[in-house]
Design a protein around this nucleic acid. Structure first.
Lengths: 419, 419
DNA sequence: GGGGTTAGGAAAGGGGGTTTACGAAGTCCT
DNA sequence: AGGACTTCGTAAACCCCCTTTCCTAACCCC
């Protein structure tokens, strides 16, 4: 068990201030102090550090009721670049962000089913990273880091992919392999935590002490934000919510168990929901998850009764599962993230809220908001880039004051008395 | 969202050192430093503070290979008393502990079904507290505090019982009512968190960063220890695991939902398990949970096939639920606590371990131990008393060094030159 | 252009932990 | 018995973090 040090406080505060600046650019030191609860002096110091790092700049002044005008600071978008890599089963997506976390360049590489060797994946990643750097035309020196999201179980400290189910990787030293081809600082974790960090910094979990980020994609998971930081668990595998038993002896899951949440609310599970309801539905594209979910979304918009029923059924499962999370964690906010949630959107959210309300206990429910992720882009890439941002902030120098060559009174000043 | 301050570090370290001393009394400063990872100097300071508080004493010396002997410190059992109050549906139990957390006195008060008014409960508590103080013969001045566990939803800061389902209390200012009759410092929370804190300080969760304390009693809950401290959630109701859906559309629960964990592995749920298997079993005492669970335990010891089957069935449900917790939290240890777990003991544990192994994911499972609570006494009383102990440590003065009347060179020493 | 007002930096102060130095209190060897 | 060696534990100095306080800068208004 590791103890916290005063340094952690500083890091947390730095995160907090930068988060706030990114969220409300431009802003004044006064606003930052009010928003973070820190003293003005501390905010000024932290802002000074960030200015030194070129991550923010002073952008002007703001009138203050009769006194000296407030200096305004804003993110220095061109002060650096961050790269987020989303390695998925069938593709590699790489995005390059400026410091305002806007996407400057994107590269996608498809991977054919056979391409499962680590070197092949590394090759795709390196190619895509090279591509986005070239596209964006940033000098390489301004790339502050590359965050890599890889599915499965990850040791973020050593950069080893301990287990990746889709390719049956075991203990692949992925980060070392990448380091041979990519010269920037590298950070690594899995997509679950990437999404959670993205919400924590830029999304609906910002400022929440406790939040749960529910990931609805092909797989399903929950990123846990507890006490303002990501909960990782003892072996960095916390958040495996997809294989929670929702229906005892229910549908068979690829994990070997029955009735996992994932088999009901993951994209393939939703397809099963649809097939069970109407096996011959035109909505169903048997081999294409994305097309099916898109079709469902359009169906709901068109008040197609089958689509509505499928969404309602899915929400019923999802709501039961989320209600359990609400009872267990008592979070401030539950965020629905990833592409299934984004595609089905409001209709799903509405049904989920109702389902959760039916299942959850009253008190925790009253304290919890359930929302869709407000992040418009790929949250995994954004989250991965955020790992790099956190890394850059952590490894940054702490001080800006140089000791000014501390003046030492020379000893010889005490002159030797003439003898 | 509240920020951590450097003061919290001090408090955490004080807890840690005292925990260690209680666990391994007597012990040396060296051992403490090694066990806590703190520097010798810091340990010495903290030990000094605890000595000043009379919570520990120096008890002798220990040879050190050839050098100055190590001073040994131990808990000063008689240095104070802590009182733990367990308010339950049908009884109030109060225990008085010395600082080694041994029980010096106990008082039980039964409450008849009709007695549900707050004043009646307060009366019982006050009477029992008076009784244990008298029994133990400690001077009142040495009572450092009284911790009170009350079921349901609790606001620990204001001391209000926001909602207690068994008596249908709503926003009862219980601590204020108690304060009118009890002069000691009062602390309050619910039994779930009491058990978790007891495990954290004295039980199987000691030293774990992340642990889950599963409470198996009439009700069922999970105390979450995350990052070395209790996770409370945004409205202090985290850990409501009993009403997690285990079987969609399963047994009706008093909470209004179907298939809650509690209806399968709480004492009444276990009785249902038994009844469904063998409605006329001699093991079943329809109106007496304790007797039934006891009978089951004896049945298992005697290899009664019905009893074995019931335990196995119960463990199957419990294992599925615990596997979900393991996946979700990735804890170091899962502790089975409360009277049902204590009564069914090893046989239950064994079956639970197997059931969890069947359901949980391999990696998190490998990192997690599942154990029975090693606490021999009522964990709720012990945990409640621990709230008082934490309170006493937190409110204790920080310093021991008095400034020694800082010598100020008088200004007039610069004598006025004679003119 | 002075007086009032507000912003922001610099210095001091308090809390926390660690490193370093040194006296204390033993053992071991001559 | 006395000196050398070893180890413990405290005190002082130091670094880090945040806050409070003081002071100057920069604007408004009259």
């Amino acid at each position: 068990m590791k103890r916290g040090t005063s340094r952690d406080i500083r890091t947390a505060n730095r995160y907090e201030v930068l988060r706030q600046i990114i969220a409300a650019s431009p802003t004044s030191r006064q606003e930052l102090a009010a928003a973070t609860g820190l003293s003005l002096a501390t905010v000024a110091t932290l802002v000074g550090e960030l200015l030194d790092l070129r991550m923010i700049t002073e952008v002007g002044f703001e009138d203050s009721a009769g006194g000296r005008p407030r200096g305004l600071v804003a993110v220095n978008a061109s002060g650096g670049a961050l790269i987020g890599v989303d390695i998925a089963e069938t593709y590699v997506r790489v995005e390059l962000f400026d410091l305002a976390l806007d996407v400057l360049a994107r590269a996608d590489e498809d991977m054919r089913p056979g391409e499962s060797r680590p070197e092949q994946v590394v090759g795709h990643v390196a190619a895509a990273v090279g591509s986005v750097v070239a596209q964006a035309g940033v000098e390489g020196a301004r790339v502050l880091g590359v965050g890599v999201s890889v599915p499965g179980q990850v040791d973020r400290d050593t950069g080893v992919s301990e287990y990746a189910p889709n390719w049956d990787w075991h203990d692949v030293p992925l980060l070392d392999l990448l380091a041979e081809q990519i010269a920037y600082p590298l950070y690594m974790d899995n997509p679950l935590r990437a999404c959670a960090v993205a919400e924590l910094w830029f999304g609906a979990a910002r400022g929440s002490g406790d939040a749960v980020v529910v990931n609805l994609g092909t797989g399903v998971g929950a990123g846990l934000v507890l006490g303002g930081g990501l909960h990782r668990g003892v072996s960095n595998s916390a958040g495996e919510w997809g294989h929670t038993t929702l229906v005892l002896d229910g549908r068979l899951c690829h994990c070997g168990n029955h009735g996992c949440v994932e088999t009901y609310v993951g994209a393939p599970g939703i397809m099963v929901n649809l097939r069970e309801l109407a096996a011959d539905s035109a909505l169903l594209h048997p081999e294409d998850q994305t097309a099916t979910i898109d079709a469902l979304a359009r169906g709901v918009a068109a008040h197609d009764p089958v689509a509505l029923k499928v969404v309602r059924d899915t929400a019923r499962y999802l709501g039961a599962g989320i209600a359990d999370l609400v009872n267990l964690f008592n979070p401030e906010v539950v965020v629905l993230s990833s592409w299934v949630a984004a595609t089905l959107g409001e209709p799903l959210l509405h049904e989920v809220r109702e389902a959760v309300a039916r299942h959850a206990l009253r008190r925790p429910l009253a304290a919890t908001q359930i929302v869709l992720s407000p992040i418009p882009t790929d949250p995994v890439c954004l989250g991965a880039a955020t790992f790099a941002l956190e890394g850059a902030l952590q490894s940054a120098p702490q001080k800006r004051t140089q000791p000014a060559a501390k003046r030492i009174t020379p000893v010889r000043s005490r002159a030797v008395p003439p003898s």
